[in-house]
């Protein structure tokens, strides 16, 4: 690229041509590349950037009749309303705690799982394992929640079995002590297998000679994992971790909405379910947009922060 660009410098020396004509020259030279990129660019402009303009309704009283542009400006009213709610602290805390659990458990387990699959030497067995682990990902949350209700409600399969065995019933669905724990277990069961895909790809690119060399030096299995496998996927883990932090306030609306009930709302209500109730059900689109904007902002800060931290620790980061 740079070599090509420098070859045009003689043209630019023509007097009176400013920076624009220089840009035009570069552009003209690469016109076919741009042409090829055009559909992709259009896609992003039309479906990603134009809708973003709708974010102005966070600062307006959006009225369906008046439309986006003619609705009244109200400044930060909807942002104030977020903090007026006496429950907002609890809701925010719930979101952070559930998100923390998910990062500690649901984020790390796929790494271990991927390494374990990687260590399986028989190819056909590995394939079978992978397929089995991927399966739950393709069930929708509605199905998973339905299964959970049928199994664990007070007269469900599990409790009936326990009762027949002479044991006492267990309460999983409406018990506020273990609700978050159950949520994270569900995520682990459903998404761990799927989460291994990227790690497995990274693992397959590790040079096999390293393992042979290590074996010659007398390193055992665990030693090899610690000194070769893990360092081999370290940068992948860091990148995924940074991206995960960007959605730290997204804890999975569908899942939590389906599992939530009045008994566990104190520990289970998160920002997304609150926005659904306050914004969408009540038809208060401005309010839900304001919350969404705030969430996006926090996510952005988290990504920048984590990226900086990663760079300081000697990793490459995402940008």
């Amino acid at each position: 690229m740079s070599a090509r660009a420098s070859s045009y410098t003689p043209d630019i020396q023509a007097r009176g041509n400013g920076i624009w004509s220089r840009i035009w020259k570069v552009f003209w030279n690469e016109r076919f590349l741009w042409l090829m990129a055009l559909p992709g660019l259009l896609f992003f402009v039309v479906y990603k950037y134009l809708p973003m303009l709708g974010v102005v309704i966070a600062f307006k009283d959006y009225n369906l009749m008046l439309g986006i542009w003619d609705s009244k400006w109200v400044g930060l009213k909807h942002f104030y309303r977020i903090f007026e709610n006496p429950d907002i602290g609890r809701i925010f805390l719930n979101t952070l705690i559930i998100s923390f659990y998910q990062i500690v458990f649901a984020f790390t387990i796929p790494i271990f799982l991927a390494i374990m699959i990687h260590e399986v030497s028989k190819r056909s067995f590995k394939r079978v394992l992978q397929t089995v682990f991927y399966m739950p990902h393709f069930l929708s949350w509605v199905v998973v929640a339905g299964i959970f209700y049928l199994m664990f409600q007070s007269d469900g399969a599990v409790n009936n079995m326990l009762l027949d065995m002479g044991l006492s019933k267990i309460d999983i669905l409406s018990n506020s002590d273990n609700f978050r724990f159950m949520l994270v277990l569900q995520v682990i069961w459903k998404e761990s297998g799927w989460g291994t895909i990227i790690y497995l790809a990274a693992l397959s690119s590790i040079d096999m000679e390293l393992y042979e060399a290590a074996k010659m030096d007398g390193a055992g299995r665990l030693r090899q994992i610690w000194n070769i496998t893990l360092p081999g996927i370290r940068s992948t883990i860091v990148v995924l971790f940074i991206l995960r932090l960007g959605s730290v306030l997204d804890v999975g609306f569908e899942q939590i909405f389906l599992m939530l009930n009045p008994s566990v709302r104190d520990v289970g209500e998160v920002i997304e379910t609150y926005v659904y109730q306050a914004g969408v059900v009540n038809g208060n689109f401005s309010f839900s947009t304001a919350v969404g904007l705030l969430k996006g902002l926090i996510g952005l800060i988290m990504i920048f922060g984590a990226n900086k931290l990663a760079k300081r620790m000697g990793e490459r980061g995402v940008f």
Binding site: L50, P51, M52, G54, V55, I57, L64, G67, I68, S140, S247, D250, G252, F253, E254, E272, V275, Y276, G279, V280, F285, S288, T289, V291, G292, L293, K295, G296
Partner: peptide
């Protein structure tokens, strides 16, 4: 499928905007 509220909303808004236009 995870649908962050804002994305869905902006989609709806965009659609209804286009429709009304």
């Amino acid at each position: 499928m995870k649908l962050p509220g804002k994305k869905v909303l902006s989609l709806i808004l965009a659609c209804s905007m286009a429709a009304s236009m």
